[in-house]
């Protein structure tokens, strides 16, 4: 029961992020929302790991955190108006 409550609150937060992705007036707004969404998914995976009792959900969580960080850094560099390697 309490797990359903956690999951629904997290899903509500995710919906708010998606609202910001859709409505954000500038590109950085959308990027922030995607970054935050990635961090929420990490929490989601950790809770799934408890419920299922398997540790590979935490592997997914670490990989997702890494991917979210890299995506944010790459988009930030793009926003600065510079190329991939300069």
């Amino acid at each position: 029961m309490i797990w359903w409550m956690f999951f629904s609150i997290l899903a509500l937060s995710g919906l708010m992020c998606l609202y910001r992705v859709g409505a954000g007036p500038t590109p950085p707004d959308r990027t922030v929302a995607i970054d935050i969404f990635g961090t929420l998914v990490v929490g989601f995976c950790a809770l799934l790991g408890i419920i299922e009792g398997r540790d590979f959900f935490l592997n997914i969580a670490i990989a997702w955190a890494l991917l979210s960080f890299l995506g944010t850094v790459a988009l930030a560099k793009y926003l600065e108006g510079r190329g991939f390697d300069e």
């Binding site: 592997n59 990989a63 890494l66 991917l67 890299l70 850094v73 560099k77 300069e86």
Partner: peptide, 26 residues
């Protein structure tokens, strides 16, 4: 033994290289 394997591992290796490229140049 666990989910994962050659392809995801290789992609994460390339992600590390990509972080180096973004942070220091190529």
């Amino acid at each position: 033994i666990t989910p994962g394997g050659g392809f995801p591992g290789g992609v994460i290796l390339a992600l590390g290289v990509m972080l180096l490229m973004l942070a220091f140049g190529r």
